[in-house]
């Protein structure tokens, strides 16, 4: 029994068909608990007043935006190396989800930035890096849409995901160099003293878990759709042969 068994679309469909409702339900539950806890049962912060509460959307969305691209990079590599169709389709399925998380991160950031920094948008390194990440997502999605043959599209987008990852990483540090920003440091880390207070930290952890589960559920559902669409295409093509 190896993990690659799940690369078989049939096996994948069976397993995820069973898992999907549970993951979705758990995601809904965790998000509900985390957000309600965060929004209604935590005190206002000294510096930030009630605006701090957007952290429960902003931080998890931003984390997932990066995680989604990382997942696309890994699945693209698996497709290029082992030619598992499920892997390529999972990368395709994750891209729009990742883009939406990126946009949520940007929009909630703007909403938070307005009262705090007095501006909707600043060319702060983190914000700029996220904007660039959104552009990478757009290019990736557009390339999938433009190429007709699905295997060709999978190959090209995989190469783009790898090269794009390197350049997205470079951009991240280039913009840091280009402009020191307004953005506060990371809100979460294990080794720093200056973390958010425990009272915000626990609901935030719950929200992050919820976003991860939400991402998994959305990607599984979308991958299942892609597999079905691909299967349909293959069957139609096969009928045409005769």
């Amino acid at each position: 029994m190896s993990i690659w068994e799940y690369a078989n679309p049939k096996k994948f469909m069976q397993t995820t068909g069973f898992l999907l409702p549970w993951v979705s339900g758990l995601a809904g539950l965790t998000l509900a608990v985390g957000l309600i806890w965060g929004y209604f049962f935590t005190p206002d912060a000294d510096k930030f007043a009630s605006t701090v509460k957007i952290i429960y959307l902003h931080v998890p969305a931003a984390m997932m935006a990066i995680s989604a691209w990382t997942m696309m990079l890994v699945t693209s590599l698996i497709w290029l190396i082992r030619r598992h169709h499920v892997s390529a389709l999972a990368a395709k399925a994750a891209a729009p989800v990742g883009l939406v998380f990126t946009v949520i991160g940007l929009v909630t950031g703007a909403i938070w930035g307005q009262p705090m920094w007095g501006t909707w948008w600043a060319w702060d390194p983190r914000l700029t890096a996220f904007l660039i990440l959104a552009l990478f997502y757009l290019g990736y999605i557009a390339l999938w849409a433009a190429v007709e043959n699905p295997d060709t599209a999978a190959d090209l987008t995989s190469v783009l995901a790898i090269v794009g990852s390197v350049f997205a990483f470079l951009s991240r540090y280039a913009v840091l160099f280009w402009n020191q920003g307004l953005h506060q440091g990371a809100s979460l880390s294990l080794d720093k003293e200056e973390n958010v207070a425990d009272v915000y930290w626990f609901p935030l952890l719950v929200c992050i878990t919820g976003f991860v589960l939400l991402f998994v559920a959305l990607v599984l559902a979308r991958t299942r759709t892609e597999i079905r669409a691909r299967r349909l295409q293959a069957l139609i093509a096969r009928e045409r042969v005769a």
């Binding site: 990478f136 557009a142 794009g164 951009s171 280039a174 160099f177």
Partner: peptide
Amino acid sequence: LMSLLVLPLYMPTLIFGAE
């Protein structure tokens, strides 16, 4: 489409060059 793909890749070069 090529412009959409290439321009984000140009950003680090642009940033350091202009700097």
